[in-house]
Design a protein around this nucleic acid. Structure first.
Length: 616
DNA sequence: CGGTTTTGACCCGCGC
DNA sequence: GCGCGGGTCAAAACCG
């Protein structure tokens, strides 16, 4: 409030800071900072009633103060101002009841002035001459909002005022800071997008050298998908987030890769006629949870035929699918059907220490079977996703025979429904891992791996990530039971703060936030084929060129996987210990929550892998 | 009562 | 052709 200047009603440029907070006009500390911006609140809201100094009678107010405060109200016609009637009321009360008479009654409540009506006929200056000697500065003398109607500054009001001033300054700072952070965020996003596009283009380039245009388009599409996923991170649900196990080859990626094909004969996909017939049959039996439309919505009829047509014509039911029969021979490029079959079989296996019977990955699962697998005293449980009718995603859960503290979870198929953030984490993981795997399996002439896969996972030194492309089912095994090279990881946990939706913050802070980088780094740096060990020096030159860090989608994958896995309290505890050892540079394979690893399962990279080669 | 788990049976492909 | 092993089904049991 500018003393001597007019207080323009509702002209306060910063009044928006306290749109609801009433201005205490009855206290002007004598030592008020001249630079303090007092917020006059002529837009007085309901809260005005809450101003104790104004609403409560204060018989103890010094009567003499009411006559010494200069008070000026500039009611310019240009500004919104209190209703004239109310202003009159105010003025009357101010001058007569309180000020002029120096009565002991409380100052008039500004509630009466809270309206912001434009009054066409009022352009007046209400001036209250009170001499307090205050010269409260405002930004615009002509538009100065008025405040002051109290002569007796009490300590509470003084405190409120200074508090308000402080808050105001703080708000200013936060506003600026917010703006700055927003700009930074935009910058980061832009950089990320540019980088990702660059990586995608590089991948395209590489693939283009070996494959046809079709594969290139796939890469582009994948990249776009991931970009979209990135952009939609904030949402509670991620529409059409799929576990792209094996279905990243074309725009029909959205189709469920029909993990119901899990373990089905690949020769079925070669027969479109049979496929069609089988598809309809299949829906009648095993697909009680979802009709054809549920899954068919996501892809065209042709695709449906391909995907659904895995049942044999002569098979009345859809059961009896031998996993071993599905061994995809990693078809060379050009054979779409075989490629499709191959991708359908793609699996992502996650090895993790957990005492819980199952890893919490955010999805809802229904157990539909359990078998004793050969060579493993622990039964293998079969689950299928029940988050949506007809979701083809299935998973197998089995404990490692060598180390029963290790839980091996193998995922198959694509979700055909939106996923919650927690589930999205694992879905992204498996999707990216499978895409990576299939990218190799689909493009290489020998059916093992292409350049991208090699560049991605090589150089390998341990079995943190295992690609089993030569197995009947191309399987990526993400081994979280091992500690990667501690030298590869930063020591500061603060660098790992990554928000994980759906993961308890304490867990995320303690462990999950550490995992993505660790996992990603490990997955990135360590891998090998089962049965085909890629030499470590292979492609290192190219790696140094473009693979100093994991590809975006791989990193996402890893992050998501670790986040999802970390959601499991038991597993989190185990992981926490492992991570701690990693960050602290402890020896690998230390496990403080479960039995000592001793490296036995870890060194055997395929132990516990749910791959036909191992189980049969 | 609806959803889930259990569990025996069935189907299928592969190897011998 | 037979046995084996993996995968799935589906009725019964279980559970909230």
């Amino acid at each position: 409030m500018a003393r001597g200047g007019g207080l323009s009603i509702d002209s306060d440029p910063i009044g928006s800071f306290f749109p609801q907070k009433p201005v205490v006009l009855n206290s002007f500390p004598e030592d008020n900072n001249k630079n303090s911006i007092i917020q006059p609140k002529w837009k007085l809201g309901p809260n005005m009633d809450d101003t104790p100094a104004r609403t409560n009678k204060s018989p103890s107010s010094p009567p003499n103060t009411t006559t010494t405060i200069p008070f000026q109200v500039n009611l310019s016609s240009d500004h919104k101002r209190p209703h004239i009637g109310e202003m009159d009321f105010f003025a009357n009360n101010l001058s007569k009841s309180n000020f002029a008479s120096a009565s002991t009654s409380a100052p008039p409540s500004l509630n009466h002035l809270h309206h912001t009506h434009d009054h066409p006929s009022t352009s007046s200056m209400l001036e209250f001459k009170v001499n307090t000697g205050l010269n409260l500065l405002t930004t615009n003398s002509s538009d100065q909002p008025m405040e002051e109607d109290e002569i007796s500054p009490n300590s509470e009001d003084t405190r409120d005022k200074s508090e308000r001033v402080g808050l105001q300054a703080e708000l200013e700072r936060m506003k600026v800071e917010n703006h700055r952070l927003r700009n930074m965020l935009d910058q980061v996003n832009n950089n990320y997008n540019a980088l990702q596009m660059h990586v995608v283009s590089l991948m395209q380039e590489q693939k283009g050298e070996e494959e046809g245009e079709e594969q290139q388009q796939k890469q582009v599409f994948d990249g776009k998908l991931e970009e979209e996923n990135q952009g939609g991170n904030g949402g509670a649900l991620v529409p059409r987030q799929f576990m792209d196990l094996g279905l990243a080859t074309n725009v029909d990626t959205a189709e469920p890769s029909l993990s119901s094909s899990l373990g089905r004969s690949q020769d079925r996909s070669k027969s479109p006629t049979n496929n069609m017939e089988v598809a309809s049959k299949e829906l009648g039996t095993s697909r009680k949870n979802g009709d054809a439309s549920d899954e068919g919505l996501l892809y065209d009829q042709d695709k449906k035929e391909l995907v659904r047509g895995i049942k044999r014509e002569d098979s009345p039911s859809d059961q009896g699918v031998a996993a071993s029969s599905n061994v995809p021979k990693l078809s060379p490029p050009g054979n779409a059907d075989q490629a499709e079959a191959t991708m359908r079989k793609a699996r992502v296996s996650v090895r993790a220490r957990s005492e819980a019977p199952m890893i919490t990955d955010g999805c809802q699962w229904r157990k539909y079977g359990q078998k004793m697998a050969k060579g493993n005293p622990c039964p293998r449980a079969y689950y299928r996703c029940t988050m949506a009718a007809g979701c083809p995603v299935r998973k197998q859960v089995q404990r490692c025979a060598e180390d029963r503290t290790i839980l091996v979870t193998t995922y198959e198929g694509n979700h055909n429904h939106p996923l919650p953030p927690a589930a999205m984490a694992m879905a992204q993981t498996t999707s990216s891992a499978a895409r990576m795997l299939l990218s190799g399996s689909m493009s290489s002439a020998d059916g093992l791996m292409n350049n991208f896969l090699a560049r991605t996972l090589l150089p390998c030194s341990s079995s943190m990530a295992t690609i089993s492309a030569s197995a009947p089912f191309p399987t990526v095994t993400l081994d979280l039971t091992q500690s990667p090279n501690p030298l590869q990881f930063p020591k500061s946990p603060n660098q790992f703060q990554i928000p994980f939706p759906g993961v308890p913050q304490n867990i995320a802070n303690s462990t999950a936030s550490l995992l993505p980088q660790i996992f990603g780094q490990a997955l990135y740096n360590q891998s090998k084929f089962s049965g085909l060990q890629i030499s470590q020096d292979a492609d290192t030159s190219q790696l140094s060129n473009q693979s100093q860090r994991p590809p975006p989608h791989l990193a996402d994958t890893v992050s998501a996987a670790t986040a999802a896995i970390a959601a499991d309290p038991n597993f989190t505890a185990a992981l926490a210990a492992a991570i701690t050892s990693i960050i602290g540079g402890a020896q690998p394979n230390n496990n403080t929550t479960t039995t000592n690893n001793n490296g036995s399962p870890s060194t055997n990279n395929n132990n516990g892998n749910i791959t036909p080669s191992n189980n049969k």
